[in-house]
Structure formats: C-alpha cells, structure tokens
C-alpha cells in the first residue's frame, strides 16, 4: 500500500514536470529511452554485489578486531585501538584510491576494480563494525559469562553459543544502518571505474547531456533500493525479537 502511494507520488512529480525537463532520455516508451534506462539499471547488480560482499567481510573482520578490544590484556586492547583509530581516520574515497593505485605496487599483486572496491569498503567499514560489536558484547551481563564458566564452556563456545547470539540481536539495528551506509558508499567506487549505479549514470550523462534527469533517476534508484533493504532489516529484527521473547 505504502509503496504504491510512493510510486504514485513519484509518477505525479515526474509527469507534472515540463519545460526544461527532458524525460525523453529515459522514457521507456521510446527505444533510446528504454535502452538508456536498462543501461542505468544495469549498475544495480554491481552496487548490490559490491556492498554485500564488502559488508560480509567487514562483519567478520570487525568481530575479529572487536574481540582483542575486550581482552584483559593491555597489549591486545592496544591492537584493537590502533586498528580502529587508524582505519577510521582515512576517508573512504581516499582508501579506495589508495587500495586501487597503491596496494598493487606495494604487494606486487594485481587487484581488479571490483576487489579493490570490496577491500576498501570492507576495511573502512570494519573499524565501525568492530566498535559496534564491542559495544554489543559489552552490553551482555557478566552473569552470562559466569554461568558459561560454571558449565565448563570454552571461551570460543561461550562466545559462539551464549554471548554473540544475544549481542547480535542487540546490534541488529546498527548492523542494518551499516548495510544502508555501505550501499551508499559503494557509489564512491565509481571513481576507479566500477560499473555500478553511479558510474553508469555518469557515463550516460557524458553521452546524453541530460544530468538533471539521469541523476534524478539515480537518486530514485538508491532510494528504492535502500527502502527495500531497510524494510527487510526491520522484518529480520522483528523475527529475532519474537524468537527471544516468544
């Protein structure tokens, strides 16, 4: 219902516009418009693939970085602090450029555009994931560790079966935020030539000279994508809550 109303509003907005607007460039009723529209939407797959791959990696790295941050040993906590502070201080765009142009000569390994993007996005996001996980794990009551201790669970089992399942439920809204953030930040990978939504739009603007219409479509593409993702995250949250509370 809500989605239908939203689409109707958008249609009205677009239809009501005249004069300087040149919607022909993406009008699906004309062959060129249809081709252009398909070209723009063609970036959707890479935007999603890039974001989902990057966030899958950053969640794992973030967790692995969060754990030493909770250690009783100062040296391990320092590892966590240094990683988080350093990674968090580098702007994502700078990180993308550095990974793409800097990492191959440093490591001697050629990294393609896609993996450069994934590495940069995942690296940048992992620092935030680490902080989210640390906060989530710290919010779990000390009694849960003590109970695990008394039934002889190892540290790994305590984390896996007792602490993390509870911590993840609590940080789910924050993880959802990060996914949305990631979908948006993936647009920056366009600067190294990744054929995702933003890059496609840029290329079409260069050949069609219609930035207003094309970028408006781009805005709508992100809007719809992220509204759908947000709805999915909210549904997941609700389901996990029911699991726990019943």
């Amino acid at each position: 219902m809500k989605r239908a109303a939203l689409l109707a509003a958008i249609a009205l907005l677009l239809g009501g516009c005249s004069g300087d607007w040149g919607w022909y460039v993406v009008d699906p009723r004309t062959p060129t418009g249809w081709t252009n529209l398909k070209f723009l939407l063609g970036g959707l797959w890479y935007t999603i693939l890039l974001s989902v791959t990057a966030i899958s990696i950053s969640v794992v790295v973030g967790l692995l970085v969060a754990l030493p941050g909770l250690s009783q040993y100062r040296a391990l906590r320092a590892v966590n602090r240094v990683y988080v502070e350093v990674v968090r201080s580098v702007p994502i765009l700078v990180l993308i450029l550095w990974v793409y142009y800097g990492l191959p000569p440093v490591t001697g390994i050629t990294i393609g555009i896609f993996w450069s993007g994934v590495i940069a996005l995942a690296l940048s996001d992992s620092a935030f994931q680490a902080e989210i996980f640390r906060a989530g794990i710290q919010s779990i009551d000390k009694g849960q560790y003590e109970a695990s201790h008394t039934i002889s669970l190892s540290y790994a089992d305590t984390m896996r079966f007792v602490i993390l399942p509870q911590a993840i439920r609590r940080i789910l809204p924050a993880l959802g935020n990060q996914l949305v953030y990631m979908l948006k930040m993936s647009s920056l990978v366009s600067v190294i030539g990744m054929q995702e939504l933003t890059r496609k739009a840029n290329e079409l603007v260069v050949s069609e000279y219609r930035p207003l219409e094309i970028y408006t479509v781009l805005v709508l593409e992100y809007l719809v994508l992220i509204l759908i993702v947000s709805a999915l995250v909210r549904r997941l949250e609700k389901r996990m809550k029911i699991d726990e509370r019943n």
Binding site: D141, G143, Q144, E146, A147, F161, V162, P165, Q166, R169, D243, E244
Partner: peptide, 9 residues
Amino acid sequence: FQQFNLFPH
C-alpha cells in the same frame, strides 16, 4: 546464582 543467569535466547 542469585540472578539465575539462564541463557535468555
């Protein structure tokens, strides 16, 4: 324990 410390999930 006083607070039971059952695993709520």
